[in-house]
Design a protein around this nucleic acid. Structure first.
Length: 333
DNA sequence: AAAGGGACCTGGCTGC
DNA sequence: TGCAGCCAGGTCCCTT
């Protein structure tokens, strides 16, 4: 599941190839993989309904040079030379694969893009070198001026791409990792800074967390308070800090919250160092390689097994309709 | 404004 | 073996 470390791994892979490149052609194969929110259209100065979503997407991306590849929390975006942004979210199963179009030329085309706004959802008509699975879930293809192509593949279609204008960041700091301007995409204006953002104001974050009468895990997952944390790193961060995920946020001291945030950040840093967490083929980097942090997980996905620290049986519980695993001995309520 | 609950989606797993 | 039903998760939206 792509959370901050996985998205950062992808961002680094993309940044190495995309910065300075120009987008030549985009193709959209599934309607759900493009988001077209009114505020995005407003920011682009176009009226809703005048153009189809694929038309808007190609109009504002084709011919644009990529200036930077940025990230905030689990969101990625490309800064485009025209001043707009190509936003991407990997959802549950999104992948960004970079490959050379020449390597696949002999495999045939994956399908047809209907430029008049219709999109086609392709089934496995052809087989790419990596296998038919990649092709079946191909959602968007972006061709670059150096002959390479970026393929957005997404089995469960929770991920998406979108194009929009920017808004100044509220606090005037840079918009995200590697962003060289003080703007973020308007679609991400509601997303809080993440734990690895140098401009994060930890004091006010702790204040906001302690104002909530909800479980610790629930507030850690709230992207409007702090972004980038998903189920995996929430469980791992809580374990590392010795706090039960079901403990109510306002009953955790400011000092302890500082530990939770610091430990969670540290876990994510270590995950980035090994390319993120892969359980199956759903998460891979831009070259299709998995990450190796799964073997370092202490609690996530280990309900019923022994705690690696004390040997007690790890407990699996449901918190706000989401499962959580913790050690009843090592983590306090 | 905060909190709670459901919807979206699909492959893999469990149980009959 | 086959089938139905459940589970996983991130985000958005609606209701209370």
């Amino acid at each position: 599941m792509p959370e901050l470390p996985e998205v950062e791994t992808v961002r680094r892979g993309l940044a190495g190839h995309l910065v300075g490149r120009t987008i030549q052609q985009v193709q959209v194969f599934h309607p759900r993989s493009l988001r077209h929110q009114p505020k995005a259209y407003e920011s682009l100065g176009i009226t809703s309904g005048s153009l189809s979503a694929p038309q808007v997407f190609s109009r504002f991306t084709e011919g644009e040079q990529i200036l930077a590849v940025c990230r905030r929390g689990k969101y990625l975006w490309l800064e485009l030379s025209g001043g707009n942004f190509l936003v991407a979210h990997l959802g549950m199963s999104g992948q960004m694969l970079l490959d050379n179009v020449d390597a696949h030329a002999a495999d045939g085309d994956e399908g047809e893009f209907l430029g008049d706004g219709k999109v086609v959802d392709l089934t496995a008509r052809t087989v790419l070198r990596q296998g038919p699975k990649d092709n079946r879930h191909l959602r968007i293809k972006i061709g670059l001026d150096d002959g390479c192509q970026l393929r957005f593949i997404d089995q469960r279609t929770f991920g998406y791409m979108a194009v929009c204008g920017g808004v100044p960041t509220v606090d005037g700091h840079k918009g995200g990792i590697d962003s060289h301007r003080s703007q973020i995409p308007v679609l991400l204006s509601h997303v809080a800074r993440d734990l690895l953002d140098p401009a994060l104001d930890k004091e006010s974050l702790i204040g906001a967390l302690r104002a909530r009468h909800r479980p610790v895990k629930t507030v850690l997952l709230d992207q409007q308070l702090v972004s980038g944390i998903g189920s995996i790193y929430a469980d791992e961060g809580c374990f590392a800090a010795g706090v039960a995920p079901g403990k109510l946020a306002h009953r955790v001291s400011a000092k302890k919250w500082g530990e939770v945030l610091a430990q969670t950040a540290q876990v994510m840093e270590r995950a980035i160092a090994v390319g993120g967490t892969s359980f199956d083929s759903l998460y891979v980097d831009v070259a299709g390689a998995p990450g190796f942090f799964a073997r370092s997980l202490q609690v996530y996905g280990r309900g019923g097994q022994e705690c690696k620290r004390c040997g007690a049986e790890l407990k699996k519980v449901v918190i706000q309709q989401r499962s959580a695993v913790y050690c009843p001995k090592c983590q306090r309520h």
